[in-house]
Design a protein around this nucleic acid. Structure first.
Lengths: 186, 186
DNA sequence: ACCTGAACACCGTTCAAGT
DNA sequence: ACCTGAACACCGTTCAAGT
């Protein structure tokens, strides 16, 4: 088994993925390139292709990893309104911690639309609690996710403002609008 | 005045901008590069820089042009609900005609957040009609636009579905949710 | 098995030179 | 005033070769 000439140990997927995420956090979407990542790992650019099929596959990996690590609120018996608020807040906070990653996610909806993601199970449970009919569950879930995506996209691009208090107010306005919209549909 | 060796007439901004839009319509965001655009115009890549400062400036130009050409519904005295629906429909339709352009717009919110855009004037008028207090106008407008952005982004990336009937249903679900959310806030 | 260097086909953009 | 070619500093990725 041959290892890198420059470093002592073989690469791991975990190492590749976490370094990629760090580069995105630091330098935005354009902060991550296969070549910069390789340099950061002190490795030849082409070595990466032994662990990952393409840049796209790498980004999928990073996104799925981050989504798995997102700790979703459990069913605590609270009202669906409060649970929906809590879920939105979790998502929102995670997105603001990794803005470049989530910008990528929201531009590649096939990643987040993977229905195996726990996010959807939690959202559907809350929507059922809210009285959304079974036949409308998927569509309503899509719409809500699209809404939150749009909001996150706006914020992470620094459009709305940088003032954290203002961000919270905007977030509240958005979530309240959604909650009232759902209440009105019963 | 020297003109292109390859073509008889000097370039115009209009020609550059409309060709760029066509390339985006045909080949997505990555379908437009300065080099491909130049080839399409039968001109040296560097000639473009005489008319446009950078690729970013070119895209701004294309976006603003497209936004100006979008024909917004006039105040026809209908209920704010119907007027909001009509506005959303116009925006939605335009976005679906130029998906790559609007994907770019939604990822560069500084473009659409330009408050000189007529879109905002129309939206604010409708929101006032809906009874949104003056102090909340800007925030509510941002939230609504973020919502629609997210929806459009999802759709144009082919996430939700390609079935036009399903798209319309999803759009209706979204707009109804927003309208009810606004009604509930009065 | 894992890593590497050279190479290919692309980018956006600068700069000095042409007419 | 407008256009051009060569060049620079980047990309992602293929491929044949090394250990």
């Amino acid at each position: 088994m041959a290892v890198s000439a420059r470093r002592g140990e073989p690469l791991t997927l975990e190492e590749i993925s976490s370094t990629a995420l760090r580069l995105m956090d630091e330098g935005g979407v354009e902060g991550l390139s296969m070549r910069k990542l390789a340099a950061e790992l002190d490795v030849n650019p082409m070595s990466l292709y032994h662990h990952v099929e393409s840049k796209e596959a790498l980004l999928r990996l990073v996104c799925h990893g981050a989504a798995e690590r997102m700790h979703l609120p459990p069913d605590d018996g609270a009202s669906w309104q409060d649970q929906l608020r809590a879920l939105a807040l979790t998502y929102h906070r995670h997105a603001r911690e990794h803005p470049a990653l989530w910008t990528y996610v929201h531009n590649h909806p096939e990643i987040v639309s993977d229905r195996r993601m726990r996010l959807w199970q939690v959202l559907y449970r809350i929507l059922r609690l809210a009285g959304v009919p079974e036949a409308e569950l998927c569509r309503t879930g899509d719409v809500l996710h699209a809404f939150v995506s749009g909001l996150v996209l706006f914020e992470t691009q620094g459009h709305i403002t940088d003032d954290p208090e203002e961000i919270d107010r905007t977030f509240d306005t958005a979530v309240n609008l959604i909650v009232r919209g759902l209440e009105g549909s019963r």
